[in-house]
Write a protein that binds this DNA or RNA. Structure first.
Lengths: 338, 338
DNA sequence: TTGAAAGCGCTACCAA
DNA sequence: TTGGTAGCGCTTTCAA
């Protein structure tokens, strides 16, 4: 069934059917109703490929996220993906997944060259990101999740990891903690300029300096065993450490397990705070005091920005920087007095 | 740039370019090389919409997953989605997201009618699922994750939740536990015939009967607070309960917290086992003894089955039922002797 | 081994 | 207010 079939049954031309459905030209109420009736009867929906070819737009946005090489996806990413799909649906857009990592630019290149999507949302951005350069050069509409080193030139939505880590450190300092360790994302991600890891570290150093504290920085692989090993190392390097701030949700269980093994109870002897999905923060016992990452809101905002960009490709780049508050749960307490 | 441009620059016809690229007709080595050179030079990729329209296939598979119930997804779902995208890419297919739940069949109907995808992967299936009926009726190729009540009629890949729960109960029974509670997914999901919750419950009842144990069943909402409340209720209903088996990964943290609050230590006084992603099982302390859900393998197998279906739509439906072993971690131990 | 041309199903322009 | 029709960029049949 196609538009010709509808036109025949409604005794009108194909163009009239097209206009009746799109509303781009006024159609008399009588014919519009007649057409609608036939359409409903047959359950007709315009073929998406034909429509895309003729109209020059696909009504699809590409979601580019890195393949899970070695490391797993994070809970935050899934909530984000779900909310993105929902938000896109509101605008009658679909979402096409692409697992192009920052390394495999060829996959992104294909996505653009084949014109499968009208615009792109780029996850897991780096401070210097080839994919961003590629999109800018191709003059292709896109929004990044996170900021590159030159944030003014592009559209993005992001969480202010620097501010969040600062807030965590301040919270701990207020509780009397003086020697604090930051458990970051893996060394490898820092080396390649992973945005959240870098900005989190900056915020840590800023807060440590501002409050006159002693801070140590520990990259950590994304798994429980590494978290446990890092705790051992932290307590070995400075047994006087009384608190950890973490950006690494995958290692979180390991941190708790390492502390338990070292005989430190949380929050009596030792405090932990971090940045995590609320859902994730509630998995550990005691629940983690954390800045709650608003994954769903990020998805919605990303779609909003991309839609604005598609409507006005020449407009000034817009951004949203979110800094959710720290939710106090059970993992932080006053520094032990002994 | 389009195929005509390539043809002009290579001094051949458009059809020759098409055949040279697809390999569906032999092309002399000389012209093939000439064409390839021009293609490489310009970075030409055929327009996906035009190709889909002409060829009658989109090279895209639809991934239908429900909108976030209670605003979040499970970790298992994300790993699955990622692996699906990767597996599809191997076959040169892209993945289009659709958040059509079992309730909103109209969204699925649109996906099919618009012919945006060649086939569909359906997540979160119910024993009786309208979407399955709809796909069968439309004679549209699809694979479900999980089995309906009539599993022989369709293609599916699934985890044998019944066998996994049975294995957990057997493990606990071997450790001497006699009074065991099952913490299931939410009541609401059971009521609508959610497959994994039902099959898990069946396996539980089977194992309890076979081993002559006392078993109680507790549906539980997908959050920590509900998990904590369920533990209270379990210990209130039967203080002699010494072990829990759970299918509810979101409530897992709450189960631990409830036990701690009740003064039961794991695994000394009380054991927990369950079905979870390895990654997730390692978040709690002690780490959860659990049947490891092979999310990535499920994704790969789903794509394999769908590809087979697309190649031979009339072939007999194939299935894969996975029953991963229970990984012993720290959350189960012998029943307390006092 | 190659080319010409007829679609695929739509949109949107030009006429009426 | 409507109809006719020329594309959109590709695939594939038919002819050479």
């Amino acid at each position: 069934m196609n538009i010709g079939e509808i036109a025949r049954r409604a005794n009108v031309s194909r163009s009239t059917v097209s206009y009746a459905l799109s509303g781009k030209r006024s159609v008399s109420e009588a014919t519009r109703r007649k057409i609608q009736q036939v359409v409903d009867e047959l359950g007709y929906q315009p073929n998406a490929s034909a429509r895309a070819l003729a109209a020059g737009r696909t009504s699809t946005i590409g979601l580019v996220f890195p393949p899970a090489v070695g490391h797993h996806y994070t809970a935050m990413q899934l909530d984000f993906i779900g909310s993105l799909a929902d938000a896109a649906a509101v605008h009658e857009y679909d979402v096409l997944l692409s697992t192009a990592g920052p390394d495999s630019t060829s996959s992104l290149r294909r996505l653009l060259a084949e014109r499968r999507v009208d615009g792109v949302v780029l996850m897991e951005v780096r401070l210097a990101d080839e994919r961003v350069d590629q999109l800018l050069e191709a003059d292709f509409p896109f929004v990044t999740i996170g900021r590159t080193a030159a944030p003014d030139r592009t559209c993005w939505v992001g969480v202010d990891h620097g501010a969040l880590v600062t807030a965590c450190v301040d919270h701990l300092a207020d509780l009397g903690h003086r020697r604090i360790a930051l458990v970051n994302r893996p060394e490898r991600l820092l080396r390649i300029g992973y945005e959240s890891a870098h900005r989190g570290l900056e915020g840590f150093e800023r807060a440590i300096a501002a409050r006159g504290l002693t801070g140590r920085h520990y990259p950590c692989d994304d798994d429980a065993a590494s978290g446990q090993a890092r705790v051992e190392q932290i307590l070995h390097d400075d047994p006087g450490t009384t608190a950890i701030v973490t950006l690494n949700e995958a290692a979180l269980g390991g941190l708790y397990q390492g502390l338990a093994r070292a005989g430190r109870s949380v929050p009596g002897d030792f405090s932990i705070a971090g940045v995590a999905l609320p859902h994730w923060a509630q998995m550990v016992s005691p629940q983690l005091t954390a800045a709650d990452v608003p994954a769903a809101e990020l998805g919605r905002l990303a779609v909003d920005l991309l839609m604005a960009r598609l409507a006005d490709p020449a407009g000034a780049p817009r951004h949203h920087l979110l800094a959710p508050p720290v939710s106090l749960r059970g993992s932080t307490g006053p520094v032990p007095t002994c």
